[in-house]
Every structure is written in C-alpha cells, then in structure tokens.
C-alpha cells in the first residue's frame, strides 16, 4: 500500500479528502436526495407513500405558507442586521482594544454556549415575562402600562434569535478584524482621513470577508429557527421552521414538510447569491 502510494503521489490529496467527502455524502448528499424524493411522493402514513414526481407540491406549499416563509426571511434579515450592529463593535473592541484580555473576552462571548440552546431561550422567557423582574419592576414604578408585554411579540422572537446567534457573528468578525495591521489605520489617519473615514475606507473594506461570513452564520440559522418563535412568540410570529416541525412531527405530512425544507433552502441560497454580489461590489469601492 505505502509502496504503491510512493509511486502515485497525486493520489495523496484525495486520500486526505476522503473522510470529509464520505461525511458529506452520508450526512448531506444522501439526506438531501431523500428529502427531495420524500417531497415528490404522495400517500399517507396508513396507506404508504409512492414516488409520483408530484412537482405541484412546491407551488402548493408556497401558496399555503407564504406568510410564514416571508416572515422567516424578514426576521432573518432583521436579526442579521441587529447582530451585525451589536457584534461588529464588540469584535472591533476585542480585536483592537482587547490587549492581553482578548482571549478572556472571546471566552465570555462564547460562554452562553456552555448551556443548552433551549435553557438559554427559556431563561429569556423569564426575563421578558409580563411580571418578570424587568417588566414587573418597570410597571411597578409606573414607567410602563400594566397591559404592556414583550412576550408573544416579534420583538421577543427577534431579540431571542439575535441573542442566540450573536457569537456566530462576533467570532468571524473578530478573526477578520484581528488580521488587519493597525498601521494601516494609522497610515489612513496620516493621509488626512478622520478616524471615521479611516474606518470606512480601510477597516470596513478589509473586514468585508468577515462581514460576509458573519451574516451567513446568523442569517441561515435565524431563517430556519423555530425554537425562539415557539418559546417566545405567539401564533402571529410563527416561522417556517415551526411549520416544518409541525408538519413533520405532528401532522406527519412528510411530503409537504420536505418540500418546504427545500423551498427554504432555495430561498436562502438566492438571498446569499444577491448578498455576495452586493458585497463584492463593496470591497472594491474606494
């Protein structure tokens, strides 16, 4: 075997790719094909399913769940913008001002990950509760009306998702910002750029790859999320993830659930495509 490899050196890189490739085939390509095939089947749990290539399921599902689909994309977009607005300054501060506390600060950023996603979201339920310690206190003092609530509103769902995916935004941004030589920023200020202009002309364009990665890492899971809507929202905040989950696990309508999953995937891919076009233009502007 080793002797054979010695004479076929070109094979070696592919050997290294083998484990990852197998992993992708087993856990990504096969499930994707299965999902596609499930979507195109008809039947019921009782009578069994048959592959009928029912492409009509896609327009049907979109027609039925368009509100939730659009809402998910919309929430995903808002979450991404919010997470960027909160995460960029955080990453910037850690990268340029963190000094020797950099690692500790990064650890703090991912600290919430040490508890489970569900527990974290449930604790938000307590924080936002109508008579919880924040709203309750504010109502007590009379700053807020007794009827005011955050739970079961889009605000609760969006802030929940933003909170949960913030570390996914901070980390790639940090990596991109950390690589920037601070002397480039000094050079910009030496060349008559104010600190803000230096940021706009140098720091931001040089961190654009991080911005791209961070947006994907928050947008994709945010659009598909169902737990925050489930725990913090009401029927009016139902997202496409909730629909898919219910179709799969409650209604057992596998074809429609599978079709919706594929539609969601397509929607995300299209959004990313346009987004990457937008950013590519950005990097080159001066």
């Amino acid at each position: 075997m080793l002797g054979w490899l010695r004479h076929h050196k070109g094979v070696v890189p592919y050997l290294f790719l083998l484990p990852g490739g197998l992993w992708l085939i087993v856990f990504f390509v096969l499930p994707l094909l299965t999902t596609a095939s499930v979507a195109l089947q008809e039947g019921s749990l009782a009578s069994g399913y048959r592959l009928t290539f029912n492409f009509g399921i896609f327009p049907e599902a979109i027609g039925r769940w368009d509100t939730q689909l659009l809402r998910s994309l919309q929430y995903g977009l808002i979450v991404t913008v919010l997470a960027m607005l909160i995460g960029y300054p955080m990453a910037y501060t850690i990268a340029f001002r963190g000094g020797r506390y950099k690692n500790i600060l990064l650890l703090l950023v991912i600290l919430p990950f040490f508890t489970s996603f569900i527990i974290r979201t449930i604790s938000w339920k307590f924080i936002l509760a109508d008579q919880g310690f924040i709203l309750g206190t504010l109502k007590e003092i009379g700053i807020l009306d007794q009827g005011f609530r955050l739970l079961a509103t889009p605000i609760a769902v969006i802030s929940g998702i933003t909170y949960n995916f913030l570390p996914f935004v901070v980390l790639p941004l940090y990596v991109a910002l950390e690589r920037i030589d601070p002397r480039l920023i000094e050079a910009a200020t030496d060349l008559y750029a104010s600190r803000f202009q230096a940021f706009l002309r140098v720091t931001l364009p040089l961190s654009i790859s991080g911005v791209f990665a961070a947006s994907l890492l928050s947008f994709i899971p945010a659009v598909g999320d169902y737990l925050n809507a489930e725990l913090l929202g009401s029927r009016n905040e139902t997202m496409i993830g909730n629909v898919i989950q219910r179709l799969f696990l409650v209604n057992r309508d596998y074809p429609e659930a599978a079709a919706l999953s594929l539609i969601l995937m397509a929607g995300i891919l299209v959004s990313i495509f346009f987004y990457s076009r937008l950013l590519r233009g950005q990097e080159l502007t001066i």
């Binding site: 002397r183 000094e186 050079a187 030496d190 060349l191 364009p205 001066i286």
Partner: peptide, 21 residues
C-alpha cells in the same frame, strides 16, 4: 493634534500600503 491635522506624512517601516486598493 491628531495625525490628520499635522503637516507631516509618514513612510511606515513595512510600508503599510492598503492591500485592497
């Protein structure tokens, strides 16, 4: 005064050219 208000310009040790421009 901050650098951008001084009539000095600098050639940095490793040039610090803007890589994206």
């Amino acid at each position: 005064l901050p650098p951008f208000k001084r009539a000095t310009n600098t050639v940095f040790q490793n040039y610090a050219l803007f890589p994206h421009l």
